[in-house]
Design a protein around this nucleic acid. Structure first.
Lengths: 145, 145
DNA sequence: ACAATTAAAGAGTTTTATATCTTTAATAAA
DNA sequence: TTTATTAAAGATATAAAACTCTTTAATTGT
């Protein structure tokens, strides 16, 4: 596995996909999303239910229903998605999994690893979903599987 | 979970522990190691068998047997341990898990994430186990659970 | 009111990671 | 050559992650 769990990868891709596909109040269904990001539909449904419950995305049932994101949703940092799915360990945890690891009692990787973790935090915490989406809309980046 | 799997965390801690405890041709047993790094003994045994098979550490059976590391082992980069256990995804994989992600077809995180991955690679690939061990021996860092 | 559409919820199954227990093989020392 | 000691190997067991299927609830349009 990479840095994030597969579930988290799906979640991020789905969020970008939804942002990209629902510019003005429109909605996009689970089938479209799961096909668009190449993920198992039912599994993704669970993930999006979770994100929806947490208010990270929104949904509506019934005809013309589906998932969408409000302006507020779009202005959140991507770290909210990661934290919702994978938790905070990735931003705070010791590389070696040591509970006692700290500035005062650093593990052999502590200082250098902290710098890397901080960069990751800065990237995910400091950039809104909207701004990632702008790169998508401008064709500068892609979600092609 | 953090950046590395739990198995990989145990592996790294064990490698540091072995390096620290076997300065001159001595060996250290699985019981000592598992207690020293706070990991399940039998599970760690499997992990060390794996590392041993791959030549990342060495072992000897029988009385006064145990695990140890040669000078060559000590001069390897820590990335060898990580790669043996968690694979290369963490050094090479797309943050979103996209197979097609590349310089030409970058995902929304691609460029910034690449920089972070490269820093991680530089840290783990560019530093020998021996040099991490020196910090341990000097008391500059610690493996305290 | 009814039928169609959609997400939510519930209840699984399968796969992978983590962990345990037992038996075997190798080595060393007596 | 026997006994003690140690890792290796094999066989499960348990827990968590990933995935699937079915039923329910909400909403819309007729």
């Amino acid at each position: 596995m990479g840095v994030f769990s597969r579930t988290c990868e799906y979640a991020m891709r789905a969020v970008f996909f939804i942002a990209h596909r629902t510019p003005e109040g429109t909605r996009v269904g689970i089938k479209d999303i799961s096909e668009g990001i190449d993920s198992p539909a039912h599994f993704l449904a669970k993930i999006l239910q979770d994100l929806s419950r947490r208010g990270i995305i929104h949904s509506a049932k019934g005809p013309n229903g589906g998932f969408y994101m409000t302006e507020e949703d779009l202005s959140r940092p991507l770290s909210d998605v990661v934290e919702a799915i994978d938790g905070v360990q990735i931003f705070k945890g010791c590389a070696l999994g040591l509970k006692q690891c700290s500035e005062k009692n650093p593990c052999p990787l502590h200082h250098e690893f902290k710098a890397i973790r901080n960069d990751l935090t800065k990237l995910l915490n400091g950039t809104s979903i909207k701004s990632f989406n702008e790169d998508l809309l401008n064709g500068m980046t892609s979600l092609k599987k």
